[in-house]
Write a protein that binds this DNA or RNA. Sequence first.
DNA 1: ATAAAAATTTAGACTAACCTAAATTTTTAG
DNA 2: CTAAAAATTTAGGTTAGTCTAAATTTTTAT
Lengths: 221, 221
Amino acid sequence: MQSFTEENYLKTIYYLATRQQGEVSTNALAEMTATKAASVTDMLRKLADKQLIHYKKYQGVRLTEEGERLALQIIRRHRLWEVFLVDKLGFRWDQVHEMAEELEHIRSEELVERLDTFLGHPQFDPHGDPIPTPAGQMPETGYQKLSEMVAGEPVQLMGVLEHSTEFLQHLDRSNLTLGCTVVIREVNTFDRSVQVQLVGGQTVFISYEVAKNLLVNQPAG
Amino acid sequence: MQSFTEENYLKTIYYLATRQQGEVSTNALAEMTATKAASVTDMLRKLADKQLIHYKKYQGVRLTEEGERLALQIIRRHRLWEVFLVDKLGFRWDQVHEMAEELEHIRSEELVERLDTFLGHPQFDPHGDPIPTPAGQMPETGYQKLSEMVAGEPVQLMGVLEHSTEFLQHLDRSNLTLGCTVVIREVNTFDRSVQVQLVGGQTVFISYEVAKNLLVNQPAG
DNA sequence: ATAAAAATTTAGACTAACCTAAATTTTTAG
DNA sequence: CTAAAAATTTAGGTTAGTCTAAATTTTTAT
């Protein structure tokens, strides 16, 4: 059984590994966990002893199969609790991240599976993130970043890569809601900002900073 | 803000204080928290520094007003989560104590109040314990221990003082369910065991050990 | 190619919560 | 009333997770 802290490291390693190629660095982990690099090194030795990560000094870190399975269990719990908080308790999507950070560490297989059933076996959390399977597999979505699309295409907003309150409230104020369809009118080559048109006709300007945190789908495919 | 562990001490002090008169002893706390007396002393000094308990060396301990308010908030959270686990997720009353021990430490006022609303503002948890108010007040019930009743009276089973799986499953096997009405046929003066008759006619023998953990009501009063 | 910069690890220390063993205080029994 | 027993506290130590400062390794820039 892992501690609270160990679970957070596993989750963070998984998170960083999916957002880049290759090994995760000590400094990146220190920044994400709001600790110092020296503390990260201590923990990496401990996780390596437990065979949850592959770790060679100065070479960065990678999850083992077992480590990834555990990380995905924690992410599954996190996302199911987020669905609960939004669907059942009526929280907004920008309010639930902190609470789910605590709820994800409650230890009970049966609790998670009953919660899953109670929620109707949801496939996605309130931010559009897919919910890993009980066995610890992350479903593939095929979503692409809006920042990588070209003008002309109609796309559907399917998820976000950033969960902060500020970011999500910014989307709300821009009338960008999960599932909405937009047509890409223009991609500015200078600042990479994107201009899209909502179904109602409203045009929305999206900075590159925002666009690279938006995940979209081709509604047809 | 208190740590996990501090919250558990506050809750335990409250629990022990209601089950006896006067101050709570270091040894009693050590037994309940499954630690050693020396560790309890350390924590008592810390809680006294924070003004959450009244503490004089060698003289036992008592919650301050603020300490009691916090203890009751924790108990409120515990009991609301138990209602959720039983009413919404379908757990049995003998399965929920351990999970609620973890859930009670999730920090969010708004979460608790939304949960309360979602559950329909329940007054009692699945074991018949009253749920403290948001302000930190414990409702009075007027329940009495079955072990202190006399023969002849019809009484209603309203709560239990012991939450262990073994105890609760023993009640289930004896067909003693919360809310059921029984007539006290006999109280054995030698071993203080009680013989009761269920509405259906079945007679149940209840040992003193069990009877002193059962809370009952006079259905009329 | 190598010196400077950046990243990482090691060494040594801190805090919270626990422990054991010894010392002290309170309670109890005769 | 006092000696033994019980309860409690103190002293000193441990572990997990953190820190700072110094040492080491890797990367980068000329």
